[in-house]
Write a protein that binds this DNA or RNA. Structure first.
Lengths: 208, 208
DNA sequence: GAACTAATGCAACTTCAGTAGCAATAGCGT
DNA sequence: ACGCTATTGCTACTGAAGTTGCATTAGTTC
């Protein structure tokens, strides 16, 4: 956590608060930073409010009051992470775009720091409706942004008109998620390219 | 839990025990049955050893000693569920087979009783290595059994020779898992057929 | 059927997640 | 600058998860 990112978070997300003063934002920043740190160090299984509170210097009662528990913290952290602007890569071909998206996705989840929050929220979604809703919103937004790659492919004539872009993206990333969190198999570059190639083949066949 | 299934479980899974006598098997049956019942009623989030112990009439110390905790119970329950023989459907076409597999999968996870154990193990795999290993073994076995559908398609000449059957199956089911547990979107029959069709199209294009 | 021992039952204890009530503090408006 | 109040800090409490040591029961073996 650099000082710049700290200040950045302090400026953002002050909506809906009756008193968005310096202290409120300060505690939020400290708690979320501590959450990320604890998550990266110990993982979701051992993520506890007490540790986060102690690490952030904020009392645990405050954390329980504002976030309700670990799930709430994760939801807030996910919203924070997805706040920044993000645009899909543009390599010139649909296969290239989807491959790049998949590679970025895999790299993100493989990295113990960057992947900790999304992984934890996926796990928390099994228990918490709030986490489930946050996940859905996050990925719908992501797929919407990625769909432009398919739109470009349609304009190039590579893919039938009327193809649902978000569906193609979903199909492209699904095998990676499947290996990572369902069948729990190792995932490599071969899976990245194969999944993208399969989505392209299905799209060209007019499945979506 | 019918009496027949109880007796069936009592007969099975007696390997590796130093004293596989009647009582040991009896407590195991009672505890696993209680686990399934608790899971179906309250879900994984509220699944607790104490409740299971109380419901089964077995002391909680015994449960902790033999299974170590909730995760161990789920692993054992999953092994129990996957013990029975299962063969992939044979409809005459690859698309039909994959669609049938997907439909069965979705129905299984949608049903609150039948889907409770697999769902819980997927969730537990985020915390427990034992659950993760059990999941991997379970699905590898499942995909192996489903791969015969692709083998038949190769023999019919519908799909290029050398196609990896398990990969096709993975690709076919992945979008369903993705909607169910990652993006948390509603899943319907349209998704079942579309995912199967996409896998077929990619397989025919020689991706796998 | 009698001794042996694996497996279970039992009670007490420790630890920790989460809550409640009240005191203290710091931002906000005048 | 001064009061108001949202927010946080603090202490103590409740309840549940999980552990430990020992007593008891029930299969197994001879």
């Amino acid at each position: 956590m650099t000082q710049t990112s700290t200040l950045l978070q302090q400026e953002l997300h002050l909506n809906g608060m009756t008193r968005p003063g310096g202290r409120t934002a300060r505690t939020r920043t400290a708690v979320l930073a501590a959450t990320l740190a604890e998550l990266a160090e110990h993982g979701y299984a051992e993520l506890t409010v007490e540790q986060i509170a102690q690490r952030s210097g904020v009392h645990k009662t405050t954390v329980y009051r504002r976030w309700g528990g670990v799930d709430g913290l994760l939801v807030d952290a996910l919203g924070d992470a997805s706040a920044g602007e993000w645009t899909a890569p543009d390599t010139g071909t649909l296969l290239g775009d989807l491959t790049a998206i998949n590679a970025e996705l895999l790299a993100g989840f493989t990295d113990p720091v960057a992947g900790a929050v999304p992984t934890a929220v996926i796990s928390a979604a099994f228990q918490s409706d709030a986490a489930s809703d946050a996940l859905r919103a996050f990925y719908l937004d992501r797929y919407e942004r990625c769909a432009v790659a398919v739109t470009r492919a349609i304009e190039r004539g590579d893919v039938p008109a009327g193809t649902d872009g978000t569906e193609v993206v979903r199909a492209s990333v699904a095998p990676l998620f499947h290996r990572l969190f369902i069948s729990r198999e190792p995932v490599g570059d071969a899976d990245v390219t194969r999944a993208a190639a399969a989505a392209v083949a299905a799209a060209k066949a007019g499945v979506y």
